[in-house]
Simulated assay, not measured.
Amino acid sequence: MKKIAITLFLVLGSLTIQSQELTWQTDMNRALEISKKSQKPLFLFFTGSDWCGWCIRLQKEVFKTPEFAKWAKDNVILVELDFPRSTPQQPEIKKQNAELQQTFAVQGYPTVWFVKGSKKDGKINLEKLGSTGYVAGGPTAWLAVADKILANKPTKTAYTTN
């Protein structure tokens, strides 16, 4: 009986951990489709995943917490726009990320842009809601900033895909 209880506990524990896993999109077209269906804004995370200390710290202190996981599932579609130094990347993702970096004038990492997107005639139109980066104070402080940004009015910009 003890073995069954322990096994059940381990299975339920692993399901809880898996349910907190977040899905980060890397393809803007796919992210836009999901955003349109869910009516949620896009969360564009510009990062240097394998070299940027502040990016790694933001991931650890905020993005990998249960509080953030719940908030993200309820509020946004996550998009990782990575600029790694040693991790290989598909050429089309590299190009897409560079174009978006230029569109949003990202000069430092981590940078998070919240946007509402639409697509018309092969162009992705993005309405900027606001941006942030690393915020000290863990998930509570970071999410307070994010909630404030999501409450703002958008400004329009365009990003063209081929």
Rank of each mutant, 00 (worst) to 15 (best):
K94R: 12
P154G: 12
T23H: 14
T155L: 06
G108V: 08
F104C: 04
A151K: 14
A105P: 05
P154V: 08
L100R: 00
A158G: 03
F68I: 10
I17M: 11
Q25S: 01
Q90P: 05
G53I: 13
K73W: 01
W113F: 13
D82I: 03
P154N: 11
Q39G: 04
N97H: 04
Y134C: 13
A144Q: 15
V76P: 06
G108H: 07
Q18R: 09
F68T: 09
V76T: 11
G130F: 04
W24P: 06
L32E: 07
K119C: 02
S19M: 14
V135N: 03
E67M: 08
L58K: 00
A5R: 14
P66Y: 12
P139L: 08
Y159S: 07
T65S: 10
I4M: 05
S49F: 08
Q39A: 13
E67L: 09
Q96P: 09
L150K: 11
V145Y: 05
G108F: 04
G117P: 00
M1L: 14
S118W: 03
L150N: 10
F46A: 09
F46M: 09
N162H: 07
G137E: 13
F45V: 01
A31I: 03
T7V: 14
K70S: 13
Q102W: 02
P84N: 10
C55K: 01
F83H: 12
T140Q: 10
L15I: 11
G117K: 01
A151D: 09
T161D: 04
M1G: 13
V106M: 05
P139K: 07
G13A: 07
R57S: 12
S38T: 06
G137F: 10
E80P: 00
G138D: 05
A5S: 11
G48M: 05
N152W: 01
L10K: 03
R57F: 09
R85Y: 08
P91T: 09
S35K: 01
L42N: 02
A136Y: 09
T140H: 05
W142V: 14
G13D: 02
E21C: 08
V79K: 02
T7D: 15
P139S: 15
W51V: 11
G48R: 02
E61M: 07
I77W: 02
K148V: 04
A158S: 15
Y159F: 15
L32V: 07
W142F: 15
K64Y: 15
K156Q: 14
P41Q: 12
V79M: 03
L42W: 01
P84F: 05
K36V: 05
S14N: 13
T157P: 04
N75M: 10
P88K: 06
G48V: 05
K70N: 11
T7Y: 06
F68E: 08
W24S: 13
K37S: 14
I149K: 06
V145N: 08
D121Q: 11
G13W: 01
A5E: 14
P66T: 13
I149T: 07
R85I: 15
L44E: 05
F83Q: 11
L10T: 07
T155Q: 15
E92I: 02
G53T: 09
K156G: 06
T161L: 00
R30C: 04
S49E: 09
